[in-house]
Design a protein around this nucleic acid. Structure first.
Lengths: 131, 131
DNA sequence: CTCCATGGTTATCTCCAGGTGACCGAGGCA
DNA sequence: TGCCTCGGTCACCTGGAGATAACCATGGAG
């Protein structure tokens, strides 16, 4: 793939940052991943996403809904029931994002090694300065 | 592409978030994109990235260097000269990220429309409440 | 009459990414 | 004798993302 989007990065990149802001926040990707499995209910998502608060799940889902990435379906029953699912556009976003997730998985070890190397090198320079 | 990474999201996703944190910050993607063109100097990058401060460029480059995504080459001359370039791993990251950038470009209009729709709907509900 | 579950809202706080501006050091040059 | 450039560092400050926790309406179970 020729990353032409990167060559002429002038208005495209700044708009792309907007998308990365959406997907790059703390919870959106996990929500998208889980809804990629199947339609789920609010409480179901809350149970499956470790550490998310009720408020942040609401905020995240509202944002994704506003951007047309998930749909929200309310059933007027008691107790309340609300279903969330990916829109077709949301599904394509999941595919695009999975490229990056795959990259991350493939290079995690390499990155860890690079960090360890960098930190060791930095520590060595530090000891040289104090001596 | 089958996004298998998303199916078993248990340890993989949390680590993937780490990568998105790296690439999802305000400046990293732009730096990677520009270094994708060719090796560049510090001031060159600073000129080309609109609005970045000296400090943030340093911080971003140090982070990318630590993760093994860019290399930093210092030439002991006067005035100082420092070259930055993508590592091979950095180049593969650029390719992976460009998928998302491409997605963003393709769906920007759709997202804008969805937002306008959502906001209009929300405003209408608001007027109903006050009436 | 009380308790519980669902799917939220609201208020309040904390923390850190990121912005701002000063300073630096060695050489060239005027 | 200053002043400029390059590639930074340091100290300080602010805005907003996100955490925490209380509250809410409804109706069924016991």
């Amino acid at each position: 793939m020729e990353p032409s989007a990167f060559r002429e990065h002038h208005p495209s990149m700044c708009r792309a940052r907007e998308i990365l802001d959406r997907v790059g926040d703390k919870w959106s990707l996990q929500v998208i991943a889980l809804l990629g499995e199947r339609t789920k209910r609010f409480t179901e998502l809350k149970r499956e996403i470790d550490g998310i608060s009720q408020r942040m799940l609401t905020v995240t889902l509202r944002g994704l809904e506003r951007d047309g990435i998930v749909t929200r379906t309310v059933y007027p029953v008691m107790p309340p029931r609300v279903d969330y699912s990916l829109t077709p556009m949301g599904a394509t976003l999941m595919d695009a994002a999975s490229t990056l997730v795959l990259w991350a998985e493939t290079h995690l070890d390499e990155i860890d090694a690079a960090r360890a190397d960098y930190d060791a090198r930095a520590a060595e320079i530090e000891t040289l300065k104090t001596s």
